[in-house]
Design a protein around this nucleic acid. Sequence first.
DNA 1: TATTTACTGAACGGTCAAGTTAAGTATGAA
DNA 2: TTCATACTTAACTTGACCGTTCAGTAAATA
Lengths: 207, 207
Amino acid sequence: MNTDVPRRGRPRDPERLKRVLEAAAQQFLEHGLERASVEAIAKASGVSKVTIYSYFPTKEALFEAAVASCTEEVFASIPRGALDPRDPENALTLIGKAFLQLKRSDKAVGTFRLMFAVTSQHAEACEAFYRQGPEELIHQVADYLRAAASAGSLSIRNADEAADQFLSLFLGSADIRVMLGLGKPKASEDARLIKANVDLFLRAYAK
Amino acid sequence: MNTDVPRRGRPRDPERLKRVLEAAAQQFLEHGLERASVEAIAKASGVSKVTIYSYFPTKEALFEAAVASCTEEVFASIPRGALDPRDPENALTLIGKAFLQLKRSDKAVGTFRLMFAVTSQHAEACEAFYRQGPEELIHQVADYLRAAASAGSLSIRNADEAADQFLSLFLGSADIRVMLGLGKPKASEDARLIKANVDLFLRAYAK
DNA sequence: TATTTACTGAACGGTCAAGTTAAGTATGAA
DNA sequence: TTCATACTTAACTTGACCGTTCAGTAAATA
């Protein structure tokens, strides 16, 4: 991917690259790495196949670029402020809501499926995905838990471990069913799940 | 797949079918549905490709048979007896151990990856996998929790929900890393995870 | 205008793999 | 022994798709 700006001649159309990446992401997420064809991505983005190959040397390179842009987008949606260290019940509920909203999105579901499927061929991409995705998320939750512990709202020794536990509570049967394409829970079921998990967590880590 | 026993002529060699299914499972789990070739499965099982096509009409049919036999094998390893309703700490530790042993196995990891990758093409196989796998497991844990609640060892209102929660605690960062092929935790780390999760669960559901 | 670069469309080469066919061998039942 | 069925080997057909080439068009700078 050459991003240099040449001095003369027709400049690159930045819209095209954007459309290619979007279409690539859509096709890869929906069909997987092998079943998505470059031809189809070209069609879907309204760009010629040759142009795609002028952007990326191989299908694999296009795949990695598409996945990287996906990861950013998927994990960008977690609330930073508005988490009161003195009100863990409310804060954890908000975190749970945001996490489920993310984890239920087609894009996130597709990205996880995709990454799981390409571990042997794209180990580095998986590593990057983990660090920018799940790991980052756990750190953010751990930060809140440390703040809540400092504020005396919770009794937590190992915030990273606790954050991992809290988030993992949302990866049970409902998430597995979603990942298997067996249908998403109703909003009321997810609300109930959030309440049950927050309750459990607060009982275990009460002051 | 015709299982009828013909009256005359050379009988089928049952060993061959077994070897084919084993080799197919191995190849599909390692390389995925698209990247595993029928030719390679034939080679690996020491059987000719034509014979495979006499057993199964298409690669897809072979895939479904292989997956079905895998699911049985993977989820057959949970301890039934020896769970004392009066000693939840010990029982939950045993359950956690067994679950992690299962979830860390190459076969289970491969099966989950595979099923996640083929949701759109093999919806029925995914449904069957969920029912015979995760759902069944949750039911078994819920049964124990009900027994423990009846014995007065735990205070649990919704055993199915609690079982789901307990098992989901093992699907956090460590499991994600394994699923992404980033390496398995050391035995000591898993032991620590089990203890942390059992402790959390007991604190939340103490009598 | 001349030149340089971006892009398109269509066609093509090469590879890989699904599934088939044919000709022949092995094995067991009648 | 005869014959039906299982199995193998090897070649083949078919189709998909990656990646390239080429001839031509579009859009910018000098």
